[in-house]
Amino acid sequence: MKQKTIWILAAVLAFIYLNNSSLLAKKPTGDPFLLAHRGLGQTFNVAGLTNKTCTAKQIYPPEHPYLENTIPSMRAAFKAGADIVEFDVHLTKDGKFAVFHDWTLDCRTEGTGVTRDHTMAELKRLDIGYGYTADGGKTFPFRGKGIGLMPSLEEVLSAFPDRSFLIHVKSNDPQEGIQLAKYLSTLPPRRLSQLAVYGGDEPVAALHERLPNLRIMSKASMKKCLIPYLAAGWTGIIPSACEKTQLHIPEKIAPWLWGWPNRFLDRMNDADTRVVIVGGGGGFSSGFDSAQDLKRLPAGFTGGIWTNRIDRIGPLLQQDTIRQDQDSLSELLSTKAVELLVSSSLK
């Protein structure tokens, strides 16, 4: 009986390994896709950040002229190689959606108060570059250059009619989800297929109830998918909550997922779920922002990559793709040359 138990246990362990090992999975094909956080914007030191930190007051010395969440920054992000651009929205006093990061205006603009207490017209009069400084307030390199640059959601989608976006609802107000669903429901199905929404549990749930075919993500939807997957994913079974959604997987957590990376990505792809890897433990929008960061990705990774520096990462991945294509072409030509040589020698 003891020997039989050992054999059964060995068989189960062998099944788990064979069913989840990426070493035995089919070789990944295709390229990863890039998700540009807030388009192309100014970056800052994330050490010691809290939810109350004014990040505009601690940016690195500017390397480009773009401000996050603006149409020019999104255009620059797509040009640099972004497949998807993420941006933040807030419901305005007159029922529109302003594309802006902060809950309040005091950090980035010369305005004061809560963003949603202002109309879209009032927000457009503000200078969104007013508060940015890289030297502790000695100089303000973007002051006076951001007047009128805060766009509405409608303006962004009109400016990029064929591009994909991830819309971030910054509040946890279910009414915001209802209002967003009301607006998005006016768009044709093809346009909706290019959009995804994530954010607070309550607004995302309210939106998903009204637009069940729209790709969404929240902490609640992540838990509904990943907790059952951690329990039963070793079997290859995909929980229904993992179907047609979006998952942002911190790189420190990813290795604990059954089948990571290749089997996991294949399973989620079969479930029509988009997987994006984010940096570190996922705190404060940590991304893959340098060549060194990219080296931490699994070999042949084909999922999404979250980046705050699309201007750096886009060209690097494009170079890698060109290099891989050249290697594949060289391999093909070498194979053809050998075939011709063998064929000639047999004549």
Rank of each mutant, 00 (worst) to 15 (best):
K244S: 11
L195I: 12
L214I: 04
P228Q: 00
L247P: 09
A220M: 12
T245Y: 04
P203A: 03
A196F: 11
I216C: 04
I253Y: 13
L214S: 02
G233Y: 05
A254M: 11
A232Q: 12
L230K: 09
N213C: 06
T235G: 05
L230V: 06
K244L: 01
M217T: 09
W260R: 06
A181N: 11
A196H: 08
L230W: 10
V169N: 05
V169L: 14
K244I: 02
K244Q: 12
C242Q: 04
K170Y: 07
I253C: 07
V197D: 01
W256G: 06
I227E: 12
N213L: 12
I216S: 00
S218P: 12
R215G: 02
Q246I: 15
R210Y: 08
S185D: 13
E243L: 04
L184S: 01
D162P: 02
F165W: 01
E202S: 14
Y229F: 12
P174A: 06
T245S: 07
M217A: 11
P239S: 01
P239V: 00
Y229D: 05
A220E: 11
K223V: 15
P188G: 07
R191D: 07
L180F: 07
K182W: 10
L184A: 02
P250H: 05
K219A: 09
V169R: 03
Y198L: 14
G236D: 05
S171N: 10
S164Y: 08
L192F: 04
G236L: 06
K252C: 04
I216Y: 00
H168N: 13
L207C: 05
M222P: 07
K252W: 11
D201V: 06
D162Q: 02
S164N: 11
R191T: 13
L214H: 02
W234S: 06
R191C: 05
S185Q: 14
P239A: 00
L195P: 09
I167K: 02
L247N: 04
A241I: 01
G199K: 02
H168Y: 10
T245G: 09
R210V: 11
K223T: 15
C242V: 02
F160P: 00
D173W: 13
H208Q: 13
C225Q: 08
S171F: 09
R163L: 01
I178E: 14
G200W: 08
A241S: 06
P188Q: 13
T245H: 05
R190D: 14
W258I: 02
Q194E: 10
Q246G: 06
Y198F: 15
E176S: 06
G177F: 04
Q179N: 09
F165N: 03
N172D: 15
A205Q: 14
Y183A: 00
P212G: 02
S218T: 03
L214A: 00
G177P: 10
K252R: 10
P228H: 00
I237G: 05
R191N: 05
A205M: 11
L211M: 01
I237R: 13
E176H: 11
G177E: 05
L184T: 06
P239I: 01
V197I: 03
K223Q: 12
G236N: 05
S193L: 13
E176N: 11
H208C: 07
P255A: 03
S185Y: 08
S218D: 04
